[in-house]
Design a protein around this nucleic acid. Sequence first.
DNA 1: CCTCTTTCTTGACAGTGTAAAGATCACGTA
DNA 2: TACGTGATCTTTACACTGTCAAGAAAGAGG
Lengths: 197, 197
Amino acid sequence: MSETSYHHGDLRAALLCEAEAELTEHGVERFSLRGVAKRAGVSHAAPAHHFGDKTGLLTALAAIGFERFLAAQKRREALAPDDPAERLVASGLGYIDYAMANPALFRLMFASKWVAEEDPTLCEVASAAFTHLADAVSAVTGPEPMEASTGQTVLVGAWAVVHGLADLMLTGRPKALMSLDDAEREAMIRAIVSKFV
Amino acid sequence: MSETSYHHGDLRAALLCEAEAELTEHGVERFSLRGVAKRAGVSHAAPAHHFGDKTGLLTALAAIGFERFLAAQKRREALAPDDPAERLVASGLGYIDYAMANPALFRLMFASKWVAEEDPTLCEVASAAFTHLADAVSAVTGPEPMEASTGQTVLVGAWAVVHGLADLMLTGRPKALMSLDDAEREAMIRAIVSKFV
DNA sequence: CCTCTTTCTTGACAGTGTAAAGATCACGTA
DNA sequence: TACGTGATCTTTACACTGTCAAGAAAGAGG
């Protein structure tokens, strides 16, 4: 496919790629659909054909984000010793890894009204990520934990600490944590998350 | 001051009030400066004189938000028994109360690039809220806890669970928590936060 | 070669934030 | 009382945004 051809070849994928660049550079607040089109070297209305509107593009991008999000958790787990509690903590570290590496995308996924939550493919990848977390928890709390109130408590609690750490760290808080170097920081996060499992 | 006079009287306060209405109605994503001016019955460029730009107005609004945020925590504490741990948990419940009651404002305060973090009055009210949390923690962990690594861990951990719960609940997650009625939900939150203190 | 469909462009429109310049009022001073 | 000075608000303008409708270009299949 020629570079100067009228038809792009795989504009949809290219737009998603440029959209991520636009997002990480300007944040959701300053994200511009026309800016994405300009990056891709295409007319300002081209994205509409593939994604409908701004929400459509950002929803598709968020779905990709959830896939990578799950992959980041699995990546950490693969490095952990073969122990349920260790693996759960590792999963949480992957959660935080991803947030720190992709701040704007993480915020888009979890706290933006620019994504259509009812989108079917988004729902699928998002719930895949969440059930994976639930599985990691049930591997710790026992065989039939999700019925028991204590199993639910561990699930919700573990999710909340990890998510809270991730979200706070994105704004440089808490200073007590962010002023540490990488090794100390990870140790502190481990200590906090371990309190739950 | 007449209602039809050229000069408004206290436009600054009125704009802040209408800005909150605009925020809760449309969210940060659809917040419009001209919309605020229209609500106040004033020309579209009037806000600029009092707040400079959109960031200025939203920063001032976030500062007000932090004051109420601290008040919401103190309100819960006043209802708690005179025990450090009980008061810390109550403070966390106030944290979550506020987030649920003012979703858009909470998100503005903690996760929006529309506020100027370096704004002096914002810094003041924000750090006032955070040091209040730190005080509640140190009332539990002992007299000189912030030096010890364990005191830091409790502080960061407690903050993270509460903040994580608040942020997740704003998007209806986790379902295991949001499907409960108010009493059950509060009991679960208490159980989770109590694990930390 | 000729249609049909997908893909992309062009042009237009209402709405946005922001800057500059002008109008209006309040208030202290002579 | 008159004046003028500064604060307050309006008007006008500009570049930019998302979205829609209509048209042009290219590929696919007969």
